[in-house]
Simulated assay, not measured.
Amino acid sequence: MDHAPAPLRLSEQLCEKIEEQIVTGALRPGARLDEQELAAEFGVSRTPIREALIQLASAGLVDTRPRRGAVVAEIEPHRLCEMFDVMAELEAMCARLAARRITEDEIVGLRAAHQACEAARDADNPDAYYWLNEQFHRHIYMASHNGFLAEQAISLHRRLRPYRRLQLRVRNRMKVSYSEHQSIVDAIVAGDGERAAERIRGHIQVQGERFTDLVASVRQLAAQPVQ
Score class of each variant (00 low, 15 high):
1 M>W: 08
1 M>R: 14
3 H>E: 12
3 H>I: 15
4 A>G: 15
4 A>F: 13
4 A>I: 12
6 A>M: 13
6 A>H: 12
9 R>E: 11
11 S>I: 01
15 C>M: 14
16 E>F: 10
17 K>Y: 06
19 E>Y: 06
20 E>R: 13
22 I>Q: 08
22 I>C: 07
23 V>P: 09
24 T>A: 13
24 T>D: 11
26 A>W: 06
26 A>N: 10
27 L>E: 06
27 L>M: 10
29 P>C: 11
30 G>V: 07
35 E>S: 10
35 E>W: 02
38 L>N: 01
39 A>P: 04
41 E>R: 14
42 F>I: 01
43 G>Y: 00
45 S>D: 11
48 P>V: 01
48 P>F: 03
49 I>L: 02
49 I>D: 00
52 A>T: 04
53 L>T: 11
54 I>K: 12
54 I>H: 08
54 I>W: 02
61 L>G: 10
63 D>E: 12
63 D>C: 04
66 P>D: 04
68 R>I: 02
69 G>S: 03
71 V>M: 02
71 V>T: 04
73 A>N: 00
74 E>I: 11
78 H>Y: 07
78 H>L: 14
79 R>W: 11
81 C>W: 12
81 C>K: 15
82 E>L: 15
83 M>N: 07
84 F>Q: 03
86 V>L: 14
87 M>N: 12
88 A>W: 01
89 E>L: 11
90 L>V: 05
93 M>H: 09
93 M>Y: 04
95 A>G: 03
95 A>Q: 01
96 R>N: 08
97 L>Q: 08
98 A>N: 01
98 A>Q: 01
100 R>W: 00
100 R>D: 05
103 T>D: 11
105 D>R: 15
106 E>S: 07
108 V>E: 15
110 L>P: 06
112 A>V: 11
115 Q>P: 05
116 A>Y: 06
117 C>L: 07
119 A>F: 04
124 D>S: 14
125 N>S: 14
127 D>Q: 09
127 D>T: 10
127 D>F: 05
129 Y>K: 07
130 Y>K: 05
131 W>D: 14
131 W>R: 13
134 E>P: 00
136 F>V: 06
139 H>Y: 08
149 L>V: 03
151 E>A: 15
153 A>M: 09
154 I>Q: 15
157 H>S: 15
158 R>Y: 10
159 R>D: 07
159 R>F: 11
163 Y>R: 07
163 Y>C: 05
167 Q>N: 13
168 L>C: 08
168 L>V: 10
172 N>P: 05
172 N>V: 13
174 M>K: 06
176 V>E: 13
178 Y>S: 13
178 Y>P: 09
182 Q>T: 07
182 Q>Y: 07
183 S>Q: 14
184 I>P: 00
184 I>Q: 02
186 D>F: 02
187 A>F: 01
187 A>E: 01
187 A>I: 01
188 I>W: 00
188 I>P: 00
189 V>K: 01
191 G>F: 02
192 D>H: 04
196 A>Q: 02
196 A>D: 01
198 E>I: 04
199 R>N: 09
203 H>Q: 09
203 H>M: 07
203 H>P: 03
204 I>F: 13
206 V>Y: 05
208 G>T: 04
208 G>R: 08
209 E>W: 05
212 T>L: 12
215 V>P: 04
216 A>V: 05
217 S>P: 06
217 S>Q: 15
218 V>W: 10
219 R>W: 09
221 L>F: 03
222 A>R: 15
223 A>K: 08
